[in-house]
Design a protein around this nucleic acid. Structure first.
Lengths: 181, 181
DNA sequence: CTACTCATGTAATCCGTTACATGATTGT
DNA sequence: ACAATCATGTAACGGATTACATGAGTAG
């Protein structure tokens, strides 16, 4: 049910169409809440039924019409209510850890290669986050309100990716030592 | 589909009943792959149909009978095949981040309290991991094979929880400063 | 002419969560 | 007496993923 609330937050920041929301979930919001366009269209439909958002058709030149969604008063109230609710900590489900734990039942070298691949993926993502940090928040001490909140979420992403890179390095080092011994 | 493979790994380490597996998914394996007893029973049923495991009824004194599951040759082969496959990096879905990003559309103080609660939860989990580390792996330099793999997964948990605690502290500090300003 | 972006959806399937259900034994 | 632990499941629902589907405009 949280996708609806992620959409409410995004639409409060700026009204937009389903397509535009899908783009935002490919970056920005999507860095901490992933969602496909199919999910987004379905959720928007439900949210219109619930009266949380309104969708106005907007004609465009040389482009298909789009429906621009806006948060209603009821939607804003619902978002405020949800923000005050406790969130359950996410269930941990780390496939790579399952593979490492089970490595001795297959080819350790292949699991090791996979850890290397994940290291690269996390390092890439970390580089993206660091670039955003430098571009959008050059002086973090002066931040307040919404931009501070955005910055703090980005900081979470940076910490998570950095810790993944460090862990992959530890795993790679230990497995290499072990296989050469 | 990964639950089946997590079960295969756990059953390779030690054969056991559905109930025993459910206990293991409350700790140990469960620290990086959560699963309820309902899911486990359903998966075991499917895995018997696929021929990946065999279930033998074992009579017990003063306790209900149980079915002890063991990985078959076909199951072992399937596990080895899966271990060589690439794993897609987990989809990020962090509800707390959504709340922080949206904090200004509700009561910031309540979101702040929730971050504090999460900080405590992560600190508790970190303490559990550190205790396991000290108890089971007092001399990590000597580890090899399966016990090394277990240790490395535990290290991932420690790094993840530590980074969450640090992030919560950063968020709490920044939000407190911002509200007092 | 090919591929990509803009724009919106439906349908099938799979996976996870919640609730319901039973029944014996052990400890307080 | 009551709660907890051992032991095993079914059923309903909801959310996510994957595949399918359409159609116009724009850049190479």
């Amino acid at each position: 049910m949280s996708l609806e609330y992620a959409i409410l937050v995004s639409l409060q920041e700026r009204a937009g169409s389903g397509y535009e929301l899908a783009r935002r979930f490919d970056k920005s919001i999507g860095f901490f809440w992933g969602a496909s366009h199919q999910q987004i269209y379905r959720s928007l439909k439900r949210m219109v039924e619930l009266g949380w958002v309104t969708g106005d058709a907007v004609a465009q030149e040389k482009r298909p019409d789009k429906k621009v969604y806006r948060v209603s008063e009821a939607g804003a109230a619902e978002l405020a209510r949800w923000l005050a609710e406790p969130a359950d900590p996410p269930t941990v489900r780390n496939e790579l850890s399952v593979k490492i734990r089970g490595a001795s039942y297959g080819e350790v070298a292949q699991v090791l290669a996979e850890v290397g691949r994940h290291r690269r993926l996390h390092a890439e993502r970390l580089a993206i986050y660091r670039a955003i940090e430098q571009r959008d928040f050059p002086d973090p001490t002066r931040l307040s309100g919404q931009s501070l909140h955005q910055f703090l979420v980005l900081r979470g992403g940076i910490r998570t990716e950095q810790s993944m890179v460090d862990w992959c390095d530890e795993v790679i080092g230990a497995l290499e030592d072990d296989s050469s011994a």
